[in-house]
Simulated assay, not measured.
Amino acid sequence: MMDFISSNGTDLLYKTWEHLYISIISLGIGIIIAVPVGMAIANTKRLAGWILTLAGVLQTVPTLAVLALMIPLFGIGRVPAIIALSAYILLPILNNTIIGVRNIDPDLRDAAKSMGMTKGQVIKSLEIPLATPLILSGVRLSSVYVISWATLASYIGAGGLGDYIFNGLNTYQPELIISATVMVTVIALLADYCLALAEKWITPKGLKVSR
């Protein structure tokens, strides 16, 4: 195994970078879409229910099937993989954003409005800070999902550590599978740890005490 790593270390690092690139871009797009949508629909129960149901149905479709559906629409490569993975991780972030906003004490909103704050100011100064812990919990969960699922992006030519896993299966080379699996696990653990630190740092002090 050590001989394999010493002779393929550069390529392994490149595949790891590809995997990180796909995962980070997909997660970023998911956050950009899910958080604003969640904030906007949190207080409209019927609309929120429909959108959460739609996102939930999407997650029941196997990842490989979603990736395969991207081929006739966007071809092969990183772009369709990123689109598919971004759509696939919306539910945890969207769900946690909605719950985070709904859990805010209505009296706090009334107090903010009585102070003359506009709706935009209430969202910026009250709802976002108070909903942040739950939003970041959804982001942490989605980060682990997207890093794991990104291995399947190799199926449509997006590269990443999935290349090692599929090649290892096709050519019966366990070292390819083991090295890629270890790297994916390490990346997922590091991402979860870094986001946990970010959650602790960003969360308002008053909420830290109460948790």
Rank of each mutant, 00 (worst) to 15 (best):
82 I>D: 14
130 L>Q: 12
26 S>H: 11
184 V>H: 13
145 Y>H: 12
10 T>L: 10
28 G>T: 04
42 A>R: 01
71 I>M: 11
11 D>H: 03
73 L>S: 14
14 Y>H: 10
198 A>M: 15
100 G>Y: 03
200 K>D: 06
132 T>H: 06
158 A>E: 09
137 S>N: 14
38 G>F: 04
8 N>A: 00
123 I>R: 12
123 I>H: 10
59 Q>R: 14
36 P>T: 04
174 P>E: 09
35 V>A: 03
148 S>R: 14
139 V>K: 13
129 P>K: 07
199 E>K: 12
125 S>D: 05
33 I>G: 14
202 I>C: 12
62 P>Q: 10
8 N>M: 02
94 L>E: 02
152 L>H: 09
13 L>K: 02
139 V>A: 05
158 A>W: 06
67 L>S: 00
142 S>N: 04
170 N>Y: 07
65 A>V: 15
90 L>Y: 01
179 S>C: 11
77 G>P: 02
189 L>W: 09
199 E>W: 00
129 P>Y: 05
95 N>I: 02
187 I>G: 06
74 F>Y: 07
88 Y>Q: 00
43 N>R: 14
95 N>H: 07
101 V>I: 14
162 G>D: 08
151 T>R: 03
142 S>I: 08
62 P>Y: 08
122 V>K: 05
124 K>W: 02
19 H>Y: 10
203 T>L: 09
70 M>H: 03
22 I>C: 13
188 A>W: 01
147 I>L: 15
171 T>G: 03
185 T>E: 06
206 G>T: 03
103 N>R: 08
95 N>S: 11
59 Q>S: 15
19 H>Q: 11
119 K>T: 05
104 I>E: 01
154 S>E: 10
61 V>C: 06
47 L>T: 08
120 G>A: 05
171 T>A: 12
99 I>Q: 10
51 I>H: 10
187 I>W: 00
46 R>F: 09
37 V>L: 15
194 C>Y: 13
104 I>P: 04
202 I>L: 15
161 L>G: 14
55 A>P: 01
18 E>I: 05
54 L>N: 01
24 I>E: 05
84 A>S: 15
176 L>N: 15
19 H>G: 13
72 P>K: 04
193 Y>G: 09
56 G>S: 14
200 K>W: 04
72 P>I: 05
129 P>A: 07
46 R>T: 05
111 A>N: 13
132 T>Y: 03
22 I>N: 11
141 L>N: 13
112 A>R: 07
125 S>V: 00
158 A>V: 05
85 L>K: 07
111 A>K: 08
94 L>V: 09
88 Y>V: 03
64 L>I: 14
90 L>T: 06
41 I>T: 11
168 G>H: 10
4 F>Q: 07
66 V>I: 15
49 G>I: 11
1 M>D: 12
141 L>Q: 12
144 V>C: 13
124 K>H: 10
188 A>Q: 04
3 D>R: 04
138 G>A: 10
157 G>L: 03
178 I>T: 05
164 Y>R: 02
7 S>A: 09
72 P>L: 06
106 P>R: 03
127 E>Y: 07
156 I>M: 09
15 K>Y: 04
163 D>S: 14
112 A>F: 10
108 L>T: 00
138 G>Q: 08
86 S>P: 06
125 S>A: 09
154 S>F: 12
106 P>Q: 07
77 G>A: 08
72 P>Y: 03
186 V>F: 11
153 A>K: 10
